[in-house]
Each structure stands twice: as structure tokens, then as C-alpha cells.
């Protein structure tokens, strides 16, 4: 690790020169922490204020915290349904993406598939495609299969569009499994399927979990597909249902929209706390490195 080395470079040049960058960096970081944490804290604070307290100004501390805004916005927007829908889309969509990606990742990491450069090219295309450019035909396709405005239709779309990233993440992970393990299995006469199912798959579980979690978050955040392919409120995910918060009805007093924001993000906060180490560990960059 280069941590200490980087710092030591300044250390040897007298005490002032070594303190100055550290001081500047710390000041900068304090400002940054305020910029990134401040808005979140202000929103949480606003969400537990009563209407009267809200008028006292955005920085006034809540004197008598109330959960009334949460109750009001929960029933006003129907957060029960919205959260349930988002949960369904994220759970099933990521599962589909991982299932579609597992064998391709196996093929790309363990085998010499002829034309794999092309397969890779396709994966990257799917990864980078701006979704807006294919909304119209996808809308058409879904209508043809009577999947428009259905949960299953949106799950399929999420699964397919999540698959390329899953394939890259899983391939990156599977590449790290030493080939000796499966060599032994092949010598014993195992088939490709047996090697995949009994050797590679069990060893890939950590990679699968990381990929699944990232995809879950991505679908929870997703907005365009839900907006275009759904019409009925009983199918809306949180992101689409929340649009209503930007209306005069909810913006009269900010505690309601603030509470709505907190509710919409809560499941991801829990997931974030549980999996932070895995999802922020540079696994994404691992996916694109050889």
C-alpha cells in the first residue's frame, strides 16, 4: 500500500511543509463533509418538525419532534404500495439479471469462446446504451406482448438491462478463481455443467451478492422505464410515485416532502449499512479490469 509513502514524501521536507498540506486537506475535508452531510441532515431535521416549527426557519432545531409528517405523507402518497412495488422490481429484476449473466460470465472467464471480443462488445453496448433512445420500440414490444403497464413487463426490462453489468462483475470475479480447481474436476470427467454448477457457482457466491446488491440499488433508483411503461398507480415504483411531492399540495410546508424523501430512501439506507464494505470496495473497477 502506498498510503504511508505518499504522506512521507512531504514529511521529510521540514515540519511546516508537512503540516501545511495536512491542514489544508483537513479543512477541505471538513467543508466537503458539511456539503455532503448537511443537506441530508437538514432534510431529516425538517421531516420531524411540525408546521409551526417549520416556519421558524430551516436551521432551527426541532423542539418537539413529531412523526405526524411521516404518517400524513405515508397515507397521502400510498407509500405502502410504492415501497412494495419497488421491492418487487428490485428483488426480481436483479435476480433475473444475475441468472441471465451467470453462464455468460462463466463462458467469458473460463473458456476460449470464439468471438468473445464480439460478445464483450455487445455487453458494453448494452451497458452504455442511453435508455431514452430505445423507449419507443421497447414500448412497442411490451405492448405487443401485453406487458405494458404490468409488473412482469418492467421486471423483464430491468433484468435485461441489468444483465451486462452483472456479466462484467461476475466475469471479473470468476477470473480470480484459480484454474487448478476446475482442472481437477475436468480430469475426473466432469461436464461443463457440473463444473459450472458444483465448482464455479459456489465459489462465486460473494461476487453474486455484490452484483445483486448493486443491481438492487440501481433498480430502486431507476425512473425512466417506470415512468414510460407504467400507467396505473398500483404499479408505480417509489421514484415515479414520488413525483407528486413536487406539487403545491405537498410543497406548502416542507415537512411532508422531507418525510417522503426519508421514507423512500430508508430501505436503501438499511441495505447500504449492511453491505457498505462490499459495494464501495472498488468492485466495479474490478469488473472492467482484465
Amino acid at each position: 500500500m502506498s498510503d504511508a509513502t505518499l504522506n512521507a514524501s512531504a514529511m521529510r521536507r521540514g515540519s511546516f511543509a508537512s503540516v501545511l498540506p495536512k491542514l489544508a486537506a483537513t479543512l477541505l475535508m471538513l467543508v466537503l463533509a458539511a456539503v455532503w452531510l448537511g443537506p441530508l441532515l437538514l432534510i431529516v431535521m425538517t421531516s420531524i418538525k411540525s408546521n409551526a416549527e417549520f416556519l421558524a426557519g430551516p436551521f432551527a432545531l426541532p423542539r418537539s419532534p413529531t412523526i405526524q409528517p411521516y404518517i400524513d405523507v405515508w397515507f397521502g402518497l400510498g407509500f405502502g404500495t410504492l415501497l412494495r412495488n419497488s421491492l418487487i422490481y428490485a428483488t426480481a429484476g436483479s435476480a433475473l439479471a444475475v441468472m441471465l449473466a451467470l453462464v455468460p460470465a462463466f463462458a467469458l472467464s473460463r473458456m476460449n469462446v470464439p468471438g468473445r471480443k464480439w460478445i464483450f462488445g455487445l455487453l458494453l453496448t448494452g451497458l452504455m446504451l442511453p435508455q431514452q433512445t430505445v423507449l419507443i420500440p421497447l414500448y412497442d414490444t411490451l405492448r405487443t406482448f401485453h406487458l405494458l403497464d404490468t409488473k412482469i413487463g418492467l421486471i423483464i426490462v430491468h433484468g435485461v438491462y441489468g444483465m451486462p453489468l452483472q456479466a462484467l462483475i461476475l466475469r471479473g470475479f470468476m477470473t480470480t478463481i484459480p484454474p487448478e480447481i476446475e482442472k481437477a474436476a475436468y480430469v475426473e470427467g466432469a461436464t461443463d455443467f457440473q463444473v459450472f454448477w458444483k465448482v464455479i457457482l459456489p465459489l462465486s457466491v460473494p461476487g453474486i451478492l455484490v452484483g445483486y446488491t448493486l443491481n438492487f440499488i440501481a433498480i430502486w433508483k431507476e425512473f425512466v422505464f417506470g415512468l414510460v411503461f407504467l400507467n396505473s398507480e398500483e404499479n408505480f415504483p417509489v421514484t415515479v410515485g414520488m413525483l407528486k411531492l413536487n406539487s403545491d399540495r405537498y410543497l406548502a410546508v416542507f415537512n411532508l416532502p422531507a418525510a417522503g424523501l426519508v421514507i423512500s430512501q430508508l430501505p436503501i439506507v438499511i441495505l447500504f449499512i449492511l453491505t457498505y464494505r462490499q459495494i464501495s470496495g472498488g468492485n466495479l473497477s474490478g469488473a472492467v479490469k482484465g
Partner: peptide, 16 residues
């Protein structure tokens, strides 16, 4: 914030 939906981020800054 990378894990937040941009809808939530947008509404948050609308208030701020």
C-alpha cells in the same frame, strides 16, 4: 448519495 435515486436527490435540493 450514489445510492440515492436522482428523484429523491432532486426533491431534496428543491427544498434546500
Amino acid at each position: 448519495p450514489v445510492t440515492m435515486s436522482l428523484i429523491a436527490v432532486g426533491l431534496m435540493f428543491l427544498l434546500i
